[in-house]
Amino acid sequence: MKNIVVTGGSGKAGRAVCRYLVENGYEVLNLDMQPSSDPICPFYRVDLNDRGQVMDALQWTGGKDHPFRKFSTPDAVVHLAAVPAPDLMPEDATFRNNMMSTYNVFDAALRVGVRRIVWASSETTLGLPFSPDNPPAYAPIDEDHPMRPESAYSLSKDLGEEMARQMQRWNPDSTFIGLRLSNVMEPADYDRFATWQDTPHFREWNLWGYIDARDCAQAVEKALHADLVGADHFIIANSDTVMETRSADLMREVFPGVPIRGSLEGRQTLLSIEKARRVLGYEPQHDWKPEKD
């Protein structure tokens, strides 16, 4: 599995994924509306809401010397393109874009013979933004937590997971792996973390979680090779929180009535990654504050 098409390869997670895959020997093609600021792989401008353009991109058969010629049949598609968060566009525009682009990518990939699709779902499907008035059902949150989309964005991700399940059912030899990504951070973002330490309520909305873009890329590669046929989903976060305060203390202060399942050690993530560890072999490598309390 060496020829990988990445949609949204110019975005925050996409840049890290493209770089990680290229540096690990993959041939990568970035499908996006804008070129990447880190042009490590070929770029093809595609409007993913246009089904014909998506089919064209996934069936590219350029001349023998064309840089895209290896992608006449990709080995896998990594679908990261989307309006990346709530409140960036009107709700209907976000929903329409994310649903149609996901349908077009899933459908076109299956039609050209791709049997492994790794795609970006979201932590927001689990009920974000959390607050004392809208607490999680329990913590740490895992994949069994109720799905509670609270915006058109999170609803599009929730329905994307259902779309993956049904399309996989239609194509029983295929694999769809949805990564419920936490808030993506690059190393340059870590300077901001110091400003959050005195106000735990500022980041309560996702239980103080995050995912380093480089670990997001690692999770994608793990998903590309996981021994799995079917449709499944995994929370992908870092092993710690964005706070210096111990996680148990954060929960006692902000969510005192929320049941804690198991023990909380130090600054342990409250977005459980145990399933990703067990099934995908995922293990974060880039915690923002490497020294553990």
Rank of each mutant, 00 (worst) to 15 (best):
V5D: 01
S10Q: 03
G11E: 09
G14R: 02
L29T: 00
D32S: 15
D32I: 09
Y44L: 12
D47R: 10
L48Y: 05
R51H: 14
G52I: 05
D65A: 12
F68K: 08
R69E: 03
K70L: 14
F71W: 10
T73R: 13
V77W: 01
V78R: 01
V78I: 06
T94P: 13
M99C: 15
S101K: 03
T102Y: 02
A108N: 07
L110V: 09
G113T: 14
V114D: 04
V114Q: 02
R115K: 14
R115E: 10
T124E: 05
P132Y: 00
A137Y: 04
E143G: 06
P149T: 10
S151I: 08
L155F: 12
D158A: 12
A164I: 08
A164M: 07
R165S: 15
R165W: 09
I177M: 04
L179F: 00
M185R: 15
D189F: 07
D198M: 10
I211K: 04
R214E: 02
A217L: 02
E221R: 11
H225M: 06
D227H: 11
L228R: 07
G230D: 01
D232T: 11
D232Q: 06
N238C: 06
S239P: 11
T241R: 01
V242I: 14
R252N: 15
V254L: 04
P259N: 04
P259I: 07
I260K: 02
S272V: 08
E274C: 11
R277Y: 02
R278C: 10
D287Y: 07
P290R: 02
